[in-house]
């Protein structure tokens, strides 16, 4: 595997392979010294053109635990603001000797464009509203960890909120479906893409009609700018229709799981504290982020079986 740009490109075998590899990484992370020399001498550059704390830190932590060198490209202080083109930036960093770029950008397709300009591996850490494959891997791993299910066959997963603008939703719909889950999208029509008829999903507009049959309730973040753009009249109205309230928590099946990719909008899609939900996996999602990203980096940059040893 050369790049990780979308779940589509990864496919079912790639997906399950990475989930299995994540088990090894999780074991490493349990050790007193959670560090192995697997990627010693390799260099990973994070190229974040959009604000991100958790994803960037998660990747950098993952790289360090595998003993890779890391460099961070800070857009606000970089020559991108002096008019340097993205192509020149990528070429310059490539010349310094980089093995992988971890890229986040507000524009769709940037990871594919960049891969034409460098020999390094590309890991998509989010491109516009398109894909965020490592988040989907984290979410699949987290569900698998909680349910001990190797396959998601028969599992009912509801993704609630701003599907239209969500790269997390696009990656997760592909990943959950590949693993056999039945995915329902819950949103007002204004927050759905124009045509989802070819997606392996069902669509609902009322959360209360699906919440009682759901095994995994996946809440998406609603950005306040959606109100200014007229996608929803008010955040209060959205929150009433699609937010997770105490009342809705009671309507959940007793073993239902609640997830959120973060950062949460408390008082909007999350009207409660996640700790009020018995089976909230939100903290596990963050914790598993490092193991999953170690697996991805090792898969792309590692040379086979050198996972053993101490750094």
């Amino acid at each position: 595997m050369k790049h990780l740009r979308s779940i589509d490109e990864l496919g079912l075998d790639g997906l399950t392979g990475l989930l299995q590899l994540t088990d090894h990484m999780a074991e490493i992370n349990q050790r007193p010294v959670p560090k192995v020399p697997a990627l010693r001498g390799r260099t990973v550059a994070s190229l974040f053109f959009e604000d991100s704390t958790r994803t960037r830190l998660s990747f950098e932590t993952a790289a360090k635990r595998l003993s890779a060198d890391t460099m961070t490209f800070n857009v606000s202080t970089s020559s991108v603001n002096k008019g340097e083109s993205l192509r020149d930036t990528v070429a310059t960093i490539t010349d310094m000797g980089v093995d992988a770029f971890v890229v986040r950008h507000k524009s769709v397709g940037i990871p594919w464009q960049i891969s034409q300009w460098t020999t390094a591996s590309i890991i998509n850490a989010g491109d516009g509203a398109h894909q965020h494959p490592t988040q989907a891997l984290v979410d699949c791993y987290t569900i698998r960890e909680a349910t001990h299910a190797q396959s998601f066959a028969g599992m009912k997963i509801a993704i609630v909120g701003d599907i239209k603008h969500s790269r997390v939703a696009r990656s997760n719909i592909q990943a959950f479906s590949l693993l056999g889950a039945k995915v329902t999208l819950v949103a007002p029509p204004t927050l759905l893409p124009p045509d989802v008829s070819h997606w392996p999903v069902t669509v609902a507009h009322k959360l209360d009609e699906v919440i009682g049959q759901t095994d995994v309730l996946y809440m998406l973040r609603l950005q306040s700018e959606r109100m200014a753009q007229g996608h929803v009249p008010t955040l209060r109205e959205y929150s009433e229709q699609y937010g997770l309230t105490h009342k809705r928590v009671l309507a959940l099946k007793s073993d239902a799981i609640v997830m959120h990719p973060g950062p949460m909008n408390r008082g909007v899609e999350m009207q409660i504290d996640p700790s009020d939900v018995k089976n909230s996996l939100i903290h596990r999602q963050v914790a598993n982020g490092v193991s999953v990203r170690m697996a991805v980096l090792f898969e792309l940059l590692g040379s086979g079986s050198n996972l053993g040893g101490q750094a």
Partner: peptide, 12 residues
């Protein structure tokens, strides 16, 4: 605006 822009997450 079409099924393809749905997949790509691009404004239609």
């Amino acid at each position: 605006e079409c099924s393809c822009c749905t997949d790509l997450g691009l404004p239609g």
